[in-house]
Design a protein around this nucleic acid. Structure first.
Lengths: 338, 338
DNA sequence: ATGAAAGCGCTAACAC
DNA sequence: GTGTTAGCGCTTTCAT
């Protein structure tokens, strides 16, 4: 366990100079910096992050809090954040809230407060005022992904516009009898994502002068399985079958695709399907979708965070940043058959 | 920022006693312990993990290193590990090696060495001697998941037996013309998983006196997409079509299922399909598979690690622990048609 | 059972 | 540009 003083001795300088040379903070002549660097290398010296953090108050570590992990969308965000942090020399400490209320409490009342992190990224979580204030009180910047949190810089997707875009794509193709597979209320926790998308759908229909029919709405649980059941329900009706389905997520949309196949319907001839996300499977299934880019979202969150940790000359960023999205047309949508 | 001395003052004891009372290390009378506890609570005191780590040498944090994150299998392992660690009051710091060789180097030469973690879990990574020694030199226990690493306690799946079991299931149903969709060589990095499974398949065939036909082997890339292409190839042949397919992963098996459908073949009437993993989609597709339990694997790894961090009376555990697996028969396999 | 005090290994004033 | 030194906030001997 080589320490800083061994490096100092080998390089023939003081520990302060070693610290400055290695961290880049403070003036060091190029010559001594090189000397220190090679001394450190030859000893295999790596700073103790604890000692460094204790002395400096900075940990070079950020906490990322997610509601789930083993779902493509969330793990992609984490992956993006991890990559961006690693590039900056930061570590990522992960907190998965999947374990329920009690776990969430302990994460916010203990884990995040023990000064292990410099900042936190909250993914798809509607933080309470209390949770936010606890962190802000100890000067930990927060950035949220997924919906506005009062007093917190957040990256949000304009779900209303995304849903409208998907629906308008169908309308522009000539569809009029369009069904919607939306998120069931019990999944409408974070930021009312499901209901916002539904509103976007309804607004597009309304603007096009098309009727919004309750019988063409099916709630599901955001899974392929749930989408399949909803699709069967919608497409199995003996008359007045919708010519198109807008599902509030790709996984549900893929479920609809499979339901259509099992009913002997051809996509997009008999029914068009559009989703949201650009899930990893969507390309395979030829699903038309409105892509959001979770990996990039994770990276963007880190960028925003870095801006907070090391404020730069330019004015402070806006409190809310809109996330990009993009319609990707594949083979699951077409004009309705005659 | 309440510190330990404020708590000490409020409780009317020394900081040493507060430390002992809160950490549980060292003798404290029940009465004072309660006094300290409530003082800490009322002040909202949480130890500074840095100061604590620096003084004690323990971080209460473990590093988890994975080759990918946004894949169900790996994120499930991480999820399991995170849950188990959280229960013990530990944090999990995540290192994703997806970024290539250089990233891997910096993780092992810097990130993991800066004393931020007490131990590391290496998932599906064939660590080099150098990587192992670096960590062992600073007394960081390692546990691996996924294959034996010399000198490291590892949890391994008996891939040979798993593949044999899957194949024997097909043989016992009466299949004789069985194809194998295996991992392509370029994906055979970690622990030769693909080739081991192929050997398990061949052994089962051999033991049953069945011929191993090269033309009934198709390599793929472990994705649904790749499995689909391989399935098409195998099932599209004009004669001598296999009556069953054993795929080395569920994702590839699902690809085969979809390929069969698209060819107008019925599963399991025209072709049986079996995979390995019990992927989250397998139940939906009715896929027969040999389940492994990634979430549990993550939890087990943590248990082993805890055993190393706080050695208990019982003798030391074995160096290699076999992971459980289980044949799950669903609707994708049946006797071959006449 | 409790307290006093010496560090843990660095960083950041401050002096030169 | 570099060295000296006083902490950062705890834990842990060693006394008592």
């Amino acid at each position: 366990m080589t320490g800083i003083d061994e490096v100092a001795r080998l390089a023939g300088v003081s520990t302060a100079t070693v610290s400055r040379a290695l961290s880049g903070n403070g003036p060091v002549s190029p010559a001594t910096r090189d000397r220190v660097r090679s001394a450190a290398d030859s000893l295999g010296y790596v700073v103790s992050s604890n000692a460094s953090s204790l002395a400096s108050g900075r940990t070079r570590n950020v906490g990322v809090v997610v509601p789930f992990l083993s779902r493509w969308f969330f793990s992609s965000i984490v992956e993006g954040a991890e990559a961006a942090l690693a590039r900056k020399g930061y570590d990522l400490t992960l907190y998965n809230l999947g374990g329920g209320e009690e776990l969430r409490r302990s994460v916010f009342e203990h884990f995040l407060l023990r000064k292990r992190v410099d900042a936190v990224v909250a993914v798809a979580l509607e933080l309470t005022d209390d949770e936010v204030n606890r962190l802000l009180a100890i000067h930990k910047p927060i950035v949220g992904i997924g919906g506005p949190i009062p007093g917190v810089r957040t990256l949000t997707l304009d779900d209303l516009s995304v849903a409208r875009l998907a629906t308008e794509h169908l309308i522009s193709l000539g569809h009029t009898r369009i069904a919607h597979v939306g998120g069931a209320v019990e999944f409408d926790l974070d930021f009312h994502l499901a209901s916002t998308r539904r509103r976007g759908f309804e607004r597009a229909m309304h603007e096009a002068g098309l009727p919004i029919r309750d019988d063409l709405y099916q709630p599901a649980d955001f899974t392929i399985n749930g989408g399949y059941a909803a699709g069967k329900q919608l497409l199995g009706r003996p008359y007045d079958r919708p010519t198109a389905i807008f599902a509030a997520s790709d996984e549900m949309a893929i479920g609809c695709l499979l339901a259509a196949r099992d009913l002997g319907l051809t996509v997009p001839h008999d029914v068009s399907v559009v989703g949201i996300d650009d899930h990893e499977l969507s390309d395979f299934f030829g699903l038309t979708t409105v892509a959001q880019f979770p990996r990039q979202q994770g990276e963007m969150a880190v960028d925003v965070l870095m801006g907070e940790l090391m404020p730069e000359p330019g004015g402070p960023a806006a409190l809310t940043t809109e996330l990009p999205y993009q319609l990707i047309v594949r083979s699951s949508t077409a004009r309705p058959a005659e």
